[in-house]
Every structure is written in structure tokens, then in C-alpha cells.
Amino acid sequence: MASNDANLSEDNSEQVEVRKQKLAKLKTTGAIVYPNDFKPTHTPAEIFNNFASANAEELAAAPKDIRIAGRIMAIRRMGKASFFHIQDRRGRLQIYIQQNRVGEDVYGLFRTLDMGDIIGVAGHLFRTRTNELTLEAEGLRLLTKCLRPLPEKWHGLADVEARYRQRYLDLMVNPDVRQVFEARSRVVRTLRRFFEERDFLEVETPMMQPIPGGAAARPFITHHNTLDMELYLRVAPELFLKRLLVGGFDRVFELNRNFRNEGISVRHNPEFTMLEFYQAYATFEDLMQLTEELFQTLAKEVIGSLQVTYGDHVIDLSPPWRRLTIREAIMTHGGAVNEDVDTLDGLHRYAVKKGIHVDS
């Protein structure tokens, strides 16, 4: 494994050097190598939305100067004509380029392009013999030279640690990850709308606190130079939100960053986002109902269904949700019986039987 990693690193270094040489050669021509004046008229997704079912006549009537920009993700060179695919955050589109259409200079530039380069293309739409919607290039510009090679096509970026440490690579080559980012954005947008529609006020509370509170967690410690005092990054926003209730705001919520100086894994980040909301003149049953409505709204807005697939399971969020006390939940799902939950000693024995450590 170590030998393979060393060979891969050496190959990457050679490719980086070749790409740097291409960039240096381009600079000697006087070309602007990182232009910022290319303005796309469409995204690949918009093209497919508008023209996916268009026939040849309809494509002939489509705009003749469609301009799109994106990263090259595949290239098929065939002499004086080639196909390649470019990708942006919304999708991917095939491009066809011919030397006799764009000219020797532009086609010569195309020959120097590598996987990962970001380009701008202008042209018109047509269908190939296999009926694939394609943009025939009439102009092409290099917008950003990618100096490092993308992960190898078939194995991709499979190493979990590398994916989380180099998130930008993960986003480039794994479409499912981009969908997670976009789903998260829709979740946050829906959360805000849900609470605002119910007359909740969004607030921001201090991230640096003199006393960390609201959760039993180890805080990160920092030092305020001007005040010469230690402060703590918050572990939860609870106490400050409750002060706002005392101050007269009956309904508040906060989408906030919290910091807990504890374990770390791909599922546990010391820095994370939390939603907390508080409502005066309400019982815990009211907040249970509100939480049920919140998750149902999120499911319908984000995935379009109340049936959520998680691993091999399908979770049905349809109302009404079953309400269980803690006692009922332990007995129903943990296999406890009455004598296990009637006394503290019984709970201790039950915990030992289940292999759960409980402080004496």
C-alpha cells in the first residue's frame, strides 16, 4: 500500500509539473489566463429543463449563442473533432468541438486542456446520432487552469478521511455529496420559513461566554486580551435564549454554531450547527406537536414525501406520531419489564444486564 501511495504521489507530481508548464506557456502568449469577464447565459440544468424533449426543428430555433461555463470532467479526443463534458453545480452537458468550426488557434488551446480545467463555451444545441443533447462549440475560453489532477475515474475518491479533509475534491467527483449540500441548504431555508410563519423571532446570541452553560460538555477555551480574561466558546445557546424570553420575546429561535471539545469522527464534529427554539405560554405537548409539524414540513419541502429512506429502512413521518413516556419506550424497545423500571435499583440491574455503564 505504501509503495502504491508513493507511486501515485510521484505520478501526481509529474502531472502537476506538466500542467504548470502549460500554464506558463499560455502566459507567454499574452493571454489573460484567469479572465473574469465570461458571462454564462445558461446552466446545463437549464438547458435540459428547456430542451430535453426538443426535436431537431425546435433545437434549430433555439438561441444560437448559448454560453455555459464549468469544469471539464471527461474528454474524448478524435483528431480534428472531439467530445467532452463540462459540469457545474447543477449538472453536466456534452460539448462537441471541431477545428474547422472554431479555428486552429482555439482548437489548439483545446488540445492543451486537461481534466479539471474550468472553461467557458459558446455555441448552439443539436443532437448526436445517439440522440444525446449536445452543445456544438463555436467559441471556447480557458477560465481557470486546474494544476492538480482529479481523482482517478473508476476508483474515484473513496478514502473516507481524504473525502472529509479535501471536501472540494469530494464535491467535484461525487454528485451525491453535492446533493447533500443542496438538501442542507433547503433544510435551513425551510426551518427559517417555518418558524417565521409562526411568529418566532430569529436571534443571535453570544458565541464567547464567560461561563459555558446549557449542556454538560467540555468547552474550548480562549483568551480575551483586552479584558485579560478567559472566555469559552459556547457549547449551547440555551441560557441566552431563555434570557430573551425573560426580556419579553415570547417566541425565539436560533440556528447557531456550537463547539464541544470532545470526540471527533465523520459523524461527530466538535463544531456543529444546532437549532434551538423557545416559546412562552406553551406546554411540552405543544412543543411536541410543533416538532412533529416541523419534521413533516421539512420532509415534504426537501424530499417531497413523508416517507424517508435511511439505509435499509423507510421511516414514515405521517401524522399522528406515537407518543411514549421514557418508561414506555424502555419497556417497548428495550425489553424491560415492570420490576426493571419501578425502582432505581431495578434500573441499575437493567443497565448492567444491557452493558450500559452507570455511575453509582
Rank of each mutant, 00 (worst) to 15 (best):
R186P: 00
M172W: 09
F220C: 08
R101S: 05
V314C: 12
R192A: 04
V252I: 13
A62V: 14
L157R: 07
S53G: 01
P270R: 11
Y164N: 03
D37G: 02
P237T: 10
S82D: 02
M274Y: 04
Y164F: 15
H224V: 04
M274E: 04
G120P: 00
R77A: 13
L143C: 06
N225E: 05
A60V: 05
G334N: 07
Q289N: 12
R19M: 05
D342I: 07
S3I: 15
K25T: 13
A122L: 02
Q289K: 12
I47Q: 00
L244A: 01
R322S: 14
G103S: 05
N100E: 14
N55K: 12
G247Q: 01
G103L: 08
L150S: 11
F83R: 08
W154P: 00
Y281E: 06
R251C: 02
T28W: 10
K153T: 11
M78Q: 11
L125E: 03
V302S: 08
P237M: 06
G335H: 05
W321M: 06
R257H: 10
W154E: 06
K22G: 02
T28K: 15
I356H: 10
H333A: 04
P44E: 13
H124T: 09
G30I: 12
F194L: 05
R71K: 13
F194I: 11
L255W: 03
E262C: 10
I315N: 13
I211W: 02
F220R: 05
R165P: 00
G247D: 00
Y310S: 13
R243G: 00
F194S: 10
F38N: 06
Q87T: 13
H333G: 01
F181P: 01
E136W: 03
Q166T: 07
W154V: 05
G91R: 10
M115D: 02
R89V: 13
V341K: 04
F51D: 03
I315L: 15
T226M: 00
V33L: 11
K300A: 09
V187T: 07
D228E: 10
K64Y: 07
N50Y: 01
G334M: 10
Q179W: 09
F110L: 06
V188H: 04
R101Y: 01
A62W: 11
L109S: 03
N174I: 14
R92Y: 00
R349S: 06
D345T: 15
T297S: 15
R234S: 03
R67W: 04
H348F: 12
M331A: 11
F240I: 00
R234H: 04
T205K: 02
E104Y: 06
R243F: 00
